[in-house]
Nucleic acid binder design. Structure first.
Lengths: 253, 253
DNA sequence: ACTAAAGTTTCATGTGATGGAAGTTTCTGA
DNA sequence: TCAGAAACTTCCATCACATGAAACTTTAGT
C-alpha cells in the first residue's frame, strides 16, 4: 500500500498505520507475528507493538498461543453488518446452496469492487474442481465468468476505462485485446450470460449470469466447471433461475 | 474547556475512538449518518468527521448516496481472513448447505465468544421459521441449542463461572436456575446433543450437536424448528452426521 | 547453559490530534 | 421559491498523546 513514507507530508498517521496493519492480513498471511507485521508495514517494532496491542484489546486482533496474531472476532462481527453480508450473502445463501446441490459444481457470487471481481461467497465441494477464487478475494474482471458479467453491465465509459489499463493475462487463453473483449462483452449483454474457457485456470471454464436490481447489475452468480462438463444450456437455465430467485429475495426484503 | 470529559483518567486514544465508531455498526445500525455516529459515541462532530473521513479513505467505511455510512469492503475483505471465516465457515458451508436441503429448516453454526454464542453462519429459507439469530450475532449460551452445547463441553470451572452471573430469561421457559442448568448440561454431555423448547423464542425449539476436534468442542451446529416438527431422532442423526463431516473437513485441511 | 532473535518497556520530544466556533451545504416546510 | 434549521465541513490555537531509539526481558535454538 504505502511503499515509503514521504517525510514532507505525512497526513494522518496513527489511524492509517493501524489500517495498514490490519490490511496485512490477506490470503497469504492469515497469521502473523509482530516481527512480520513490522516488516510488512515498514514500521518500527515499538510502534507496531503499541498499535497491535490496542487493536488486540479492542478485539480487532487476537493473539494465539503460537504468538501469532489473527483477525479477531470483533472485527469479524462488525464486518457481518456490511451491506455485502447483510443483504447480499444472507439473501443469496439458500439459493446458492440449492444451486450447489443441483450442479455439484463450484458456485461463486461476486460484486464489483474497485475494478475487480470481489468474491462474496463460494461453495466448494469434494466433487468439484479446485479454484483460486475465495470468499473475500479479488480477481480480474476480464478473465472470470462473474467478472465479465459485472463488467459487461457497466456504463460504456467505465468499460473503456477498464480496457484502457494494462490487463493481466494469467493463461494463454485469456482475452486481453481490447477489441476482442469489447466483442465478448457485447455478446454477454446479448445473451445474458458469460462464458470463459481456460481464461483464468487451465482445464476449467465458467458460466455466469447477472443479478439485476432496478435495471442495474448488482452482482453476478457463476459456476466453475471442468471444461468437458461445460453443458451451457443446462447451466445457463439453472443459473438464470437462481439469479431471479436471489433478485426476488433482495427486493422482498 | 472540556465539560463533558470523563474525569476518571480516560486514556482515550485515537485508535480506541476509531474502533468505537466501527463498533457502532451492529444489527440495529447497519447504516449511520455522521450525526448518529456522533451521538452514539458521544464524540464531538468535528472529531467524528475527521476519524470517519480517514476510515472512509481506507475503505473501512463507505458513504452511500443517502449520506449514510456503512461498513466498507476493505474491512469486510480483511474479516474474511479471520480464522472463523477461513477455516470454519469455508469447511462447514457445503455440509450446512446439505443439512439445509435435507431438513428444510433453519441451520446455524456457532462458536463460543466472550461468554456468548457467536453465530458464524446460518441458512434461513422461505420454508423455515423466522429467528433472531444472525450471522455475526451473539445470543446467550443457556437459552439456545448451540449455546448449551458450547457451554456443556467447557471446563467445570468455566461453567460455574458462567452460572455465577445473572442469567437473562427471554421467555418463561428459559432455564435460569443454576441447578436446573447443571442437570441440563449433564444431560447434553450424556446424550451428545442439546434440546431447547421455547427457551429463546415462543413456538420454536432447537437441537444442536458439538463439532469436536482433538477432544475439544470447537463449534456447534444446530437446527431451529417449529415445536411440532421437533422430530428428535431424525434430526439428531442428521446433525451428528453433519458434525462428523465438518470435523473431518477441518482435520483434512 | 549460552546466544541470538523476538518481544516489551521506557521516556524526552514535538508532531499531529483535539474540539469549539465559524462557515457551508442540504433538507424541510410553507 | 425561499427562509430557517439541521447536517455537515473547515479552521486553527493549544497541548495531549503518539513517536521510536535504546535499554531491557523473554523465548527459542544449539
Amino acid at each position: 500500500m504505502s511503499p515509503a513514507r514521504v517525510e514532507s507530508g505525512a497526513p494522518t498517521a496513527l489511524l492509517e498505520r493501524a489500517m495498514d496493519i490490519l490490511g496485512c492480513f490477506d490470503p497469504k498471511h492469515s497469521a502473523l507475528t509482530l516481527t512480520q507485521i513490522s516488516e510488512l508495514t515498514k514500521l518500527p517494532m515499538s510502534t507496531c507493538h503499541r498499535i497491535v496491542g490496542t487493536l488486540e484489546a479492542g478485539g480487532f486482533l487476537s493473539k494465539g498461543s503460537d504468538r501469532k496474531f489473527r483477525v479477531g472476532t470483533k472485527l469479524w462481527t462488525i464486518a457481518q453488518h456490511a451491506p455485502l453480508s447483510e443483504r447480499l450473502r444472507e439473501s443469496a445463501l439458500p439459493t446458492l446452496a440449492r444451486l450447489y446441490e443441483e450442479t455439484g459444481e463450484n458456485v461463486t457470487l461476486a460484486v464489483l469492487d474497485r475494478g475487480q471481481a470481489l468474491y462474496v461467497d463460494r461453495l466448494v465441494g469434494e466433487r468439484s474442481i479446485p479454484t483460486i477464487s475465495r470468499a473475500g478475494g479479488h480477481l480480474p474482471l476480464h478473465t472470470t465468468g462473474v467478472g465479465k458479467v459485472l463488467l459487461a453491465y457497466q456504463s460504456e465509459k467505465a468499460i473503456e476505462q477498464y480496457l484502457a489499463q494494462p490487463l493481466p493475462k494469467p493463461t494463454p487463453q485469456s482475452i486481453t485485446q481490447p477489441d476482442a473483449l469489447r466483442k465478448d462483452l457485447a455478446e454477454v449483454r446479448k445473451n445474458g450470460y458469460s462464458i470463459t474457457r481456460q481464461e483464468m485456470t487451465r482445464g476449467s471454464g465458467s458460466i455466469a449470469v447477472p443479478i439485476m436490481r432496478k435495471g442495474k447489475c448488482v452482482a453476478a452468480v457463476g459456476v466453475i466447471v471442468h471444461l468437458n462438463r461445460l453443458d451451457i444450456n443446462r447451466l445457463v437455465s439453472t443459473l438464470t433461475d437462481a439469479a431471479a430467485s436471489i433478485a426476488a429475495e433482495l427486493d422482498g426484503h
